[in-house]
Amino acid sequence: MADHDELETLFAQARENRPVLPDDLVVRIETDAEAMRLQRSAPKERRQRRWLGLDRFGGWQALGGLVAASAAGVWIGIAAPGFLPDPATYIFPQDTTFLVADLSLDTGFLEDTE
């Protein structure tokens, strides 16, 4: 019985004197948590940025400029201002008609086959 009482006293003392979490251990634990939190969020951002290929071209601001320039180019192509020559006439002149005969090609072989 005396042994039992002594044991209960020792248990009570142990409960009253539970060790306090040392400050430096708290710092270590919270540093681990923060590193884990950052590591977990970093791959997602990297994946998005890699998908867009933005890092190489200067980020989303550069992408915005590129989109605006492209839109302006398309609009000028559709509705060019009057003082600008139509670039299409340089490629497909509309006042000139080419005939196959103008090329002075020998077309005799076409007649032979008929």
Binding site: L25, V26, A33, S41
Partner: peptide
Amino acid sequence: SGDAMAARMLTDRLGPRSYS
């Protein structure tokens, strides 16, 4: 889901139990 404060609260609450 990225809440750093939650880690501090869990450390305060569970750390002493593990350490004890």
